[in-house]
Structure formats: structure tokens, C-alpha cells
Design a protein around this nucleic acid. Sequence first.
DNA 1: GAACGTATACTCGGATAATTCATGTCCGAGTTGACAGGG
DNA 2: CCCTGTCAACTCGGACATGAATTATCCGAGTATACGTTC
Lengths: 164, 164
Amino acid sequence: MKLSQGVEWAMHCCVLLVQAPPGTAVRRTTLAGYYGLPDAYLAKHLKSLAAAGVLLATSGPRGGFRLARDPKEITVLDVVEAVEGAAPAFVCTEIRQRGACAMPAELCDGPCGVARVMDDADRAWRASLRTVTVADLSERLPPGLQERGRAWLEDPTAALPPFA
Amino acid sequence: MKLSQGVEWAMHCCVLLVQAPPGTAVRRTTLAGYYGLPDAYLAKHLKSLAAAGVLLATSGPRGGFRLARDPKEITVLDVVEAVEGAAPAFVCTEIRQRGACAMPAELCDGPCGVARVMDDADRAWRASLRTVTVADLSERLPPGLQERGRAWLEDPTAALPPFA
DNA sequence: GAACGTATACTCGGATAATTCATGTCCGAGTTGACAGGG
DNA sequence: CCCTGTCAACTCGGACATGAATTATCCGAGTATACGTTC
């Protein structure tokens, strides 16, 4: 029971992309430089985000990544499922149908009690992640962080504005 | 984001142990045989359950495993945490303090917004697992299964009673 | 001066190694129960 | 007949291989830009 490291990277990158001017794409290296991440590996997760429809990717000069839709319409669950996959954490292998006391398959119409409890918990977890959007996280940033991100995305070589 | 296979095994074994006569220990091979599990590997998870205080292990002849306390006092979360560990699924590596736009540590008194959301979801997941006990799962078994388990635990070599 | 064609440089995407964790297996330490011998 | 000491078998616990998934990295396919040339 451990989440991939890429979830953290993807979440922070999406929040950072909220600060990007509308219609502009941000290069992979610019995103990686902000947090000091290995850009070669970050590409793998950004690709997943694009495949899941969270980000839009454009090639060529002036290309890069941008949010696929309004930040208010992108939940944390969308980002997590893009990186980790939408499969539930618990997979029932139906061990009740195996072994010396195997239950006949015709009596197993629904999921077993264990699977039901685990699925309920999984739904609660996902429901909690669905209540927060990327826009919410951007607004909750400490003062000065939004401006800092905006300045970095516009020109990663320029001097950064100081903290408030 | 995937739970270990041992969680399913441990859950079913604990529910099966509810059917055991009070004060008696069940051998590892008896538990494994009921579901057709590799007993050598099942030992690893049973050991974790014993270390976490969910099961009690006794050595020697007539030894084995039994529930450490009343089934009503053993939640599903207890079993899951015994196998998977109690560490939260999301670990914040504080990437906001690294990279070109690193935040100074003195401004990071609390967890970042991403970590807060993930922790809330983790708490919701654990809270959901805490609402169900092993005794609940035993009572929700299909009719005939409790008797079947009781008969198997008493004498794994005898013929099993038929289903209702 | 404007339009077009070409070449170039820049971007992402998929294919390819290294490492960590879960999986699977084995043998040894410890303990209980049974048995044989003695009182 | 009862008690005791020893033995033996049975149990769990930890140490040891194996496989898969995650982590990490590189190079090639595709594209929009920029420039030079032509009308």
C-alpha cells in the first residue's frame, strides 16, 4: 500500500500549470527545473497525464504541456488516477472458490464480504479526492507563490521575485 | 497504488478463525488448506498478524494461531495495517523545498496543500475500514459457511457438511 | 515587399536498463506432549 | 499405581532465492518555426 512518487510530482506540476498564461504551453524542462526533478523521468508521468486527458501536449518549438480544461474541472482524483491507474487498490482473487472447502461458483453471485468492505473504503478514498480541484489547491497556496510560479513560467532564466 | 495479496489471505483467515472453538489454536496448514494457499508463504503474513497483536501464536504440538481478542474488537483496519503497515499511502518528499524555486524551510511550518488532501483521503479510507469488525464479516457469511468452517477446523480430514 | 518552399531546431513519445519491493521457499530455535523408567 | 526425567515430534520464527513492478534514462518520430529564395 504505497502510492507512486509520480503522484506528488504530477500534483505539484498541475498546480504550477494553473499559473501559466492561458493558451501557452510549458516545456518539460521548465516544469522539472522548478522543483529540481529529473526531467527525463518526469516525462513518463506527464505522458500519462496527457493520455488520461488531464493535460494537452504539443510538439515542436514553443510546444509543451498545458491543462486540458478549466482548473476547476480537474479534481485531485483525476491526477491520481492518471498516474496510478483507475484500478481499485484491492483485487479479490476469489480464494473462497479454491482449496479444500471451495465454494461452488454458482453460489458466488455477488462479491464476498471482504471485497465489499474493501470496495467501500476505496470508494470513500476516491470520493475524498474528488472533493478538491486543482484550482482549489492553487488558491490555497501561501501568498507570493502564485506570482513566483507565474514569473518562472514566463522566463525561467530571470531573477525570481522575493517572498512577501 | 495496489494492496498486497496477503491482505485478502489475512482477512479470510481471521474470519475463519472466528469459527474456531474458544481457547483452541489452529495450525498454519489447516488454515492454508481451507483456501488452498501456499502455507509456507502464508506463514509470513500470520507472523505479521501476531506481531501486530491481532493473533496469538503458540508453539509445539497442539499449537497454532488464535484470535488475540474478541472478534468484535478486531476491525478490518487492524488486519490491513498488520499486513501492509500503518504508514500512510502518500509520503510527501517536500519537493517544494527543492529545485530552482525552493521554498525556505522556515516558511514550511505545516504540510503542503497536496499532502493535506492526500492525508484527508487516507483518513477517510482508514475510517471506513474501521467501521467493520471481523465479527461482522463472520455474521454476514452465507448460510452454512460458519458450520462448514467449524467442521473443517475441528477435523480437516473428515467429510464436509453439504451446503444448505 | 510578399509569398512560398525548404531546412532546421525543438518538442514529445516509446523502447530500453537498473533498482527496490513484494513474492515464494527453506531450514533452524523453541516448546509442548508423550513415553519409559523408577519409586 | 504415581511421579519424574528424558526424548521426540511438532510448531512458529527468521534467513535465503526469485520475479515483477517501479524508478531512471536514452534516442528516434513528428512538428511548428525561421530563414532564404523567388515572384
